[in-house]
Nucleic acid binder design. Structure first.
Lengths: 135, 135
DNA sequence: TTCCTTGCAAATCGTTTGCATAATG
DNA sequence: CATTATGCAAACGATTTGCAAGGAA
């Protein structure tokens, strides 16, 4: 399974790196397609999974039923706006202690944790329900 | 939208209350069906959603692509075993402070958070990869 | 030339929904 | 009787996969 180069994989990764939000496979498809008209959705999914496996990007499952992808693989947390569904990066102090708290008295090995915060984002608090739902 | 009684809803809820694990809709279906042969999957989904809305049970999205349900609606955290996919309750000290930590400096309102811990559960650490994957 | 990758379409999977009928209050 | 709930099957949306053809090493 030696990885070979692929123009579409490069573009998909480049697209993700150029966004601070966390696009879904479909958004990636719609956008990369603009410069690569014959790109197929299957290829987008295959490459997103591949890039996730190599650790170049990470897959976010925030509970809305759709996978989001993030080119920023450094440890950080996300906020999900329940109004517009946007996924926003949070800059916050480290909370890794919760893992120790969870592990205390637990019969097993805790390897990691997933946390996302939800509520109303800044724009939605100012603007009256725009119903934007990202692009 | 006045709720009416239904024998199947009662059984679905009773089944959930009798389990300490966190069954998926399909597991609920398979089991309740034993005593109620003509139960349909659609009814199971409809009632699980209904019970979730009334707050009698809660829906767990642990990131494996399938919804799990929990009759224990008291605030507590979950552990997901990456070996057997089991979802286990954690008894741990309160970590609500993470919400304040996340909210500090964030432009928006944080209403809640979802956290689950993952790793290897006690049974899987003892038993060599049984590949059980629950029922 | 070998083997990975693509495009396309069909297939899966979990979940939702429309509709006529059955059950509840 | 007025409605809500059910069973069944078809519809859905997201993601995966089989296959023949194209591209990289």
């Amino acid at each position: 399974m030696a990885l070979k180069h692929s123009r579409q994989r490069d573009m998909i990764k480049a697209f993700l790196m150029g966004r601070k939000d966390h696009p879904t496979a479909d958004v990636v498809y719609m956008n990369v397609r603009k410069e690569f008209p014959n790109l197929s959705l299957g290829t987008v999914y295959r490459n997103l999974t591949l890039l996730t496996e190599t650790g170049e990007i990470s897959r976010l499952r925030v509970g809305d039923g759709v996978d989001h992808f993030d080119a920023d693989t450094s440890p950080h947390y996300h906020f999900v706006c329940t109004e517009c569904d946007r996924v926003i990066d949070l800059e916050m102090d480290n909370i890794d202690t919760i893992q120790d708290i969870a592990g205390a008295g637990f019969d097993g090995r805790i390897a990691g944790h997933v946390t996302y915060f939800y509520g109303t984002c800044g724009s939605c608090m100012k603007a009256p329900q725009p119903g934007q739902k990202s692009e």
